Amino acid sequence: MTSLPRAAGAERMDEPDQDPAELNRSLADLRHVNRWLGGYRVVLHHLAKLVARHPRPSYRVLDVATGSADIPLKVAAWARARGIRMQVVATDNHPTTLDVARRHAAADANVRVEPADALHLPYADDAFDFAVCSTALHHFDARADLLRVLGEMHRVARIGGIVNDLRRSRPAYVGARLLAATFWRRHPVTAHDGPLSVRRAFTPAELDDLARAAGLPGARAHRHEPFRVALVWEGER
């Protein structure tokens, strides 16, 4: 457990009228965080295990709240390098963020970008094999919304899902504050959102509790250093 309580509050990158240049800069910062602090590694680690346990001729993956589609691009590249047929649908509900994602994913035929609300995914039951959500679950405050997002991911993914997020702790918060005062000091959106994201994030025990409440089969929260946690579930239908 942690003595750092979970905080509520709005992140600036979620504002519908956020300046496009600042939002683009914040999304670039998030790509750097995913690259250097384990975001890509965590998703690919657990996806590889799921694929190995559930071999298929091809796979469909849904990425919820995709940001600039960097996770889908990494997943698609990982699959191609191993001869795995995998189509990734990257979704978001922020218009400007969707524009950024479309530009980033335009050259990859295995990644398609679509608008979608994580609380009401516009897809049929079992439309995908896996559902992924990276560094986005903490953007929801209300427990009902958190359970709704997890429930929607489970509904559309017939094999399983991965929630990859920050792990709330005092060291993580200190690290985010340090980045805000140095590398992000000229990036107002990231400097504000980075430390707040840590305060809004979850401990493994909290994710395990949410998974039980959402009825996710075989769910378990995995700690990843330095400051990541992954909630993974599988229960093929």
Rank of each mutant, 00 (worst) to 15 (best):
57 P>K: 09
34 N>H: 11
52 A>D: 14
26 S>W: 04
25 R>D: 07
59 Y>F: 14
40 Y>S: 06
40 Y>L: 05
45 H>P: 06
26 S>A: 15
62 L>G: 06
66 T>S: 06
45 H>C: 13
65 A>G: 11
20 P>S: 09
61 V>H: 04
83 G>N: 13
19 D>E: 05
33 V>H: 12
61 V>C: 10
38 G>S: 05
60 R>V: 00
74 K>N: 11
70 D>Y: 04
75 V>T: 01
64 V>F: 03
17 D>Y: 07
78 W>I: 05
43 V>I: 06
75 V>H: 00
27 L>P: 01
73 L>D: 01
38 G>N: 01
28 A>G: 14
68 S>G: 15
45 H>T: 10
72 P>I: 06
72 P>H: 04
14 D>Q: 03
58 S>N: 08
13 M>D: 07
30 L>I: 13
18 Q>T: 08
15 E>K: 12
75 V>Q: 01
76 A>V: 04
31 R>W: 03
25 R>P: 01
38 G>C: 09
57 P>G: 13
79 A>M: 06
49 K>I: 11
73 L>N: 00
41 R>C: 05
42 V>W: 00
49 K>P: 02
77 A>K: 05
83 G>E: 07
64 V>H: 01
84 I>Q: 13
20 P>K: 06
41 R>A: 11
67 G>S: 06
39 G>S: 09
52 A>I: 11
41 R>Q: 04
29 D>R: 14
15 E>S: 13
84 I>L: 15
29 D>S: 15
82 R>S: 14
28 A>R: 12
73 L>W: 00
68 S>R: 10
28 A>H: 11
39 G>M: 05
85 R>T: 11
25 R>G: 11
47 L>T: 02
23 L>Q: 05
61 V>L: 14
80 R>A: 15
66 T>D: 00
79 A>T: 02
35 R>T: 05
40 Y>W: 05
22 E>V: 08
32 H>M: 12
24 N>Y: 02
41 R>T: 01
13 M>A: 13
68 S>N: 09
64 V>M: 06
85 R>E: 10
34 N>S: 12
36 W>R: 10
56 R>V: 09
16 P>F: 10
36 W>I: 09
67 G>H: 00
24 N>C: 12
56 R>S: 15
37 L>W: 04
66 T>G: 03
59 Y>L: 12
85 R>Y: 05
59 Y>P: 12
70 D>T: 06
62 L>V: 03
51 V>W: 10
84 I>S: 15
28 A>L: 15
43 V>Q: 02
84 I>N: 14
23 L>A: 10
52 A>N: 13
81 A>R: 07
50 L>T: 07
52 A>S: 15
16 P>S: 14
55 P>F: 12
67 G>D: 02
41 R>L: 07
83 G>Q: 10
54 H>V: 12
39 G>R: 05
54 H>T: 13
35 R>A: 13
74 K>H: 11
70 D>R: 04
52 A>R: 15
60 R>P: 00
53 R>H: 14
70 D>L: 10
38 G>K: 03
17 D>N: 13
66 T>F: 00
44 L>E: 04
26 S>D: 08
34 N>W: 03
29 D>T: 06
63 D>T: 02
31 R>L: 14
80 R>I: 08
82 R>E: 06
40 Y>Q: 04
52 A>E: 14
36 W>P: 01
57 P>A: 15
54 H>W: 08
